[in-house]
C-alpha cells in the first residue's frame, strides 16, 4: 500500500511501499505538481529503483521549471537506497 498526501504550500507526505507495482500511479500524481516541493518521507517504509526513478524524474521535471524538490525525514534504511544509487550526493535530502 502506497499513498501520497498533499498539503499546503507544496508539501507532500509519502507513506507505505513505493515499489514497481505502485510507481506508475505515483508518477501520475507527481506529474500534476508544478511548484517547489517538500516531500516528507517519514512514513515511507520501502523504496526500490522504480520508486527512485519516479522521484528522479519528478526532480528533473521540476528543476527544468526552476523549482526545488526536497526530501525530508527519511528513514535510515530508505536513505541507504539513495546512497547505494549515488543520489544522496545530488538530490536535496534533509
Amino acid at each position: 500500500m502506497f499513498e501520497i498526501q498533499t498539503g499546503e504550500g507544496g508539501y507532500l507526505k509519502l507513506s507505505g511501499r513505493l515499489d514497481a507495482a505502485e510507481s506508475e500511479r505515483a508518477l501520475t500524481q507527481l506529474n500534476t505538481l508544478s511548484q517547489p516541493i517538500t516531500v516528507d518521507c517519514s512514513d515511507l517504509e520501502y523504496i526500490s529503483s522504480a520508486g527512485l526513478g519516479i522521484l528522479l524524474q519528478t526532480y528533473k521535471r521540476l528543476l527544468g521549471l526552476g523549482h526545488t524538490f526536497k526530501l525530508v525525514n527519511m528513514q535510515p534504511r530508505v536513505r541507504n537506497v539513495f546512497t547505494y544509487a549515488g543520489l544522496d550526493k545530488f538530490l536535496l535530502i534533509e
Binding site: 526500490s48 529503483s49 522504480a50 527512485l52 526513478g53 528522479l56 526532480y59 528533473k60 528543476l63 537506497v81 547505494y84 544509487a85 549515488g86 543520489l87 550526493k89 545530488f90 538530490l91
Partner: peptide, 18 residues
C-alpha cells in the same frame, strides 16, 4: 556511473546496481 549528477541520469541499470 553513480557520479553522474541526478539531472543527467538516464533510466535503466539502477536495479542491478542496487
Amino acid at each position: 556511473d553513480t557520479c553522474t549528477p541526478a539531472g543527467e541520469r538516464q533510466p535503466g541499470g539502477l536495479g542491478i546496481h542496487l
